[in-house]
Amino acid sequence: MKVTTSTSGAAMVAAVEGRVDSANAKDLDQELGAVIDQGGSRLVVDCSDLRYISSAGLRALLVAIKRTNKEGGGVAMCRVPDHIREVLEVSGFTRLTKVYATVEEAAGSFD
C-alpha cells in the first residue's frame, strides 16, 4: 500500500494505492490520521489505484470519517473502481461518505 498526499483547493487529498487488508490497515489508519493532523479535516480519498480493501481497511476509513466529521469537515471519496464501490455499498459506507467522479469535484463538495 502507498498513500500519496497532495492538496486540491482547501482540501487535502490522500491517494491510496494497492491493497489494504488486516495486515496493513493500521498503516492506513496512521497515514490518514497524519493527514488530518496536518489540517486535513476536509479529506478527499482518491481510490483510483486502490486494488483491494477489506473490512479492516474500512475500519481505518471509518475512524477518519468520524474524526473529520467531528472537526467540521468530512471525507469525500473519488475515482472509486466498481469492485471497490461494491464493497463500500454493501458495508453502508456510501451512506457515510459521498463518492465523486474526480478529485476536483470531491474537493469542491466541501465548499
Binding site: 477489506s54 473490512s55 479492516a56 474500512l58 475500519r59 471509518l62 470519517i65 468520524k66 466529521n69 464493497v87 454493501v90 458495508s91 453502508g92 451512506r95 457515510l96
Partner: peptide, 16 residues
C-alpha cells in the same frame, strides 16, 4: 444504515 458516529465496525467482515 447507522450514521458514522453510531457505527461500530464489529461484524462487518462476516457481513461482507
Amino acid at each position: 444504515e447507522l450514521p458514522a458516529e453510531e457505527r461500530e465496525i464489529g461484524g462487518l467482515g462476516i457481513h461482507l
